[in-house]
Structures are given as structure tokens and as C-alpha cells.
Amino acid sequence: MYGVPPADARVTAVVVTFNRLSLLQGLVERLEQVPELAEVLVVDNASTDGTGEWLATRGDRVLGRTLDENGGGARGFHDGLAWAVEREADLVWLMDDDGLPDPGCLARLLEEKDLDFWGPLVVDEAQPERLVFPIRLPGGTRVVHELADVRRAATAGRIDGIVIPFNGVLVTRELVQRIGLPRAEYFIWGDDHEYRLRAEAAGARIATVVDAQVRHPSVGSLGTPMMFGRTTYNHSPSDLKHYCMARNNLLNLREYKGWPHALAFVAKTAWFYTFTRPSPGRLAMSVRAMYDGLRGDFTGHRRYL
């Protein structure tokens, strides 16, 4: 069990952004109104839309750091979390530039005193009674998409053992010092899940606080039905996202679930691009991505940038 942050804990927000200045501006302006925050650290993934110049105009409470190249969300959160710890943060509030915490979201999260890694629900900004990222309830296979279902499943306002990183999650300094930083080499897709799995393996106390919320644009359906509707597959039309998903998900399964789960994912991918949505090119890409990951090559995604 990790130490409980002091009542006067220093809370720092870390925001990762890339070429979405208008979204970043709305988020930073919201965060500047959060009294519990000591400062806001923005990691800019080498944006070309004026983000760096705009950050230079902010006050002392908002600091920006522009990376030398686009390292994806994974490097952004790796560097941002390290930066926050260097600046003596006791708690770090992690988020992308396309989410918008409700007023009072952080205050509600801070009411929980016995957690190490916890966050809000992420709801659809256009349909706030629906989750952007569905939650698989602990102790079973049920996946819920509606806010009402999550609230019914909660105990004392939260669901233990589940969190959706990095969308408004809080992490303690003590946990970061114990388990390290997110894997920068993952670029995108799976870095946040790997960090949650690592925290879980280290015995961290994890939870979702259901009456703390972040508004987020819809990302569409995250699961395409396959095998006659008995399961789903995270198909993306983006080659970049698919390459990173295939590579990183295989590594996460091998590391935290074991080879049987990893091989099942390989078989699932082969089925999907052979029968569900036949695509020899996408199947070949999947094989290449998985092979790259197994041999420790984290440069292959660059061909899809």
C-alpha cells in the first residue's frame, strides 16, 4: 500500500497536445479556473499550428515544453509525468487535449483518500449519458456503455479496480516512483493500458469515481463484431493506429496475461482480416507490427506518419 498524499498535496496537471490548438486553448482556460491545481504543464508534440507560440503567452501557472519531434501520446505522457515529478508534484492529473473536465471534477477526485491511480468517467460531450470508453465491470464479462449502468454498479460513488487512463486520471508521486514512467516507445495506443496493468501488478489501489466526469468527443464504435457476433475487434481505418495497436497490444498481453492470451490475439487478428474484413495488406501489416514488437523494434510506425 502506498502513502496517502498530505492534505495540502501539490497537484499538477499534465496535458499532451499535437496540432489541436483550439481544443488546447479551451482546456487550458478551464484548468486555469481550477483552484486545487498548483500549475499546468503542457507537453507539445512538435505542433505546427502555433501551439508553442500560444503557450509562450500564458502566465506563470501554465508552462509549455515543445518536443523536438512528434513522439505520440506515449512520449508526451512519459516526459510530462517526469517533468511534474521533477517539479515536486504530489499528485499528477493526466489528460489529452481533447477532453474537458467538468467544473468540480478534480475536487471530487481529491475527496478519495485511499487510492493511488484513479480517475473520472469519460462521457460523450454530445450525449453525456453515454460513455466514450465502455467499461468492463469487475468480476465478469459485462461491458457497459451507459452512465446509468455504471452508477448502478458503483459502491460509495466509485468502482474499484477499473480506470480509463489517461483521460483525467490522478496518479500519486509514490506510485510513479515505484513503477516508473509510461513506455515512450509505444508512440500511441496501448501505452495507457500498459501503465494501468503495471500499476495493478504492483498492487496499486485503482478506481473510477462515477460522479466525476470529463467530456470528450465521440470516438465511434471501439469494437467491430466478428466470429458471428460472439466477440469484437478494435479495427481502425488508420494504418498508424492499427500498426501501433497490433504491436503494442501483443506485447501487453504477453507481458501481463501470458503467451496463451497473446497467441489468441494473433489468431483473432488473422480471422478478422481473413474472414470478417478480408484485407491481405492489413493482415501483412499486422504480422509485421507484431514481429517488430517481439524483436524490440519501435521505429516501424514512422512509415505511417
Rank of each mutant, 00 (worst) to 15 (best):
M1H: 07
G3M: 12
P6V: 06
D8G: 06
A9V: 00
R10E: 10
R10D: 10
A13S: 05
R20C: 09
Q25E: 09
Q25S: 05
G26H: 13
E29R: 15
R30P: 13
V42Q: 01
V43W: 01
V43I: 15
T48K: 15
T48M: 14
E53I: 11
E53H: 05
A56R: 10
T57L: 14
R61N: 02
R61P: 02
L63C: 07
T66Y: 01
D68L: 14
G71P: 08
G72Y: 08
G73A: 07
F77S: 02
D79R: 11
D79V: 08
G80W: 04
G80K: 11
A82Y: 11
W83N: 13
A89C: 09
A89F: 01
D90A: 12
L91C: 08
L94E: 00
L94K: 07
M95Q: 06
D96I: 00
D97T: 00
G99L: 11
L100H: 05
L100M: 02
P101T: 11
P103W: 09
A107V: 03
R108F: 00
E112W: 03
L115A: 02
F117W: 08
G119P: 01
L121W: 11
L121T: 12
P128I: 09
E129W: 04
I135S: 03
G140Y: 04
G140S: 11
G140N: 13
V143T: 15
L147S: 04
A148L: 12
D149I: 04
R151H: 08
R151N: 03
A153M: 07
A154S: 12
A156K: 13
R158P: 09
G168E: 04
T172F: 05
T172C: 05
E174R: 08
Q177P: 02
Q177M: 05
Q177G: 03
L181C: 07
P182C: 10
E185P: 00
F187N: 06
F187C: 03
F187T: 07
W189P: 00
G190R: 14
H193V: 15
R196D: 06
E200T: 13
A204L: 11
A207Y: 09
A207G: 13
A207K: 05
T208N: 05
Q213D: 00
R215G: 05
V219H: 14
V219T: 07
S221G: 14
M227I: 01
M227W: 03
N234R: 14
N234Q: 11
L240K: 10
K241D: 08
H242C: 12
H242A: 13
Y243A: 01
C244V: 10
C244R: 06
C244H: 03
L250P: 11
N252A: 15
N252P: 01
K257V: 08
A262R: 04
A262P: 02
L263F: 08
T274R: 14
F275R: 15
T276F: 01
T276V: 09
T276A: 14
R277T: 03
S279P: 12
S279E: 03
P280G: 14
L283N: 02
M285L: 04
M285W: 00
R288M: 06
R288T: 09
A289M: 12
M290N: 05
Y291E: 00
G296Y: 05
D297S: 09
T299H: 01
L305R: 04
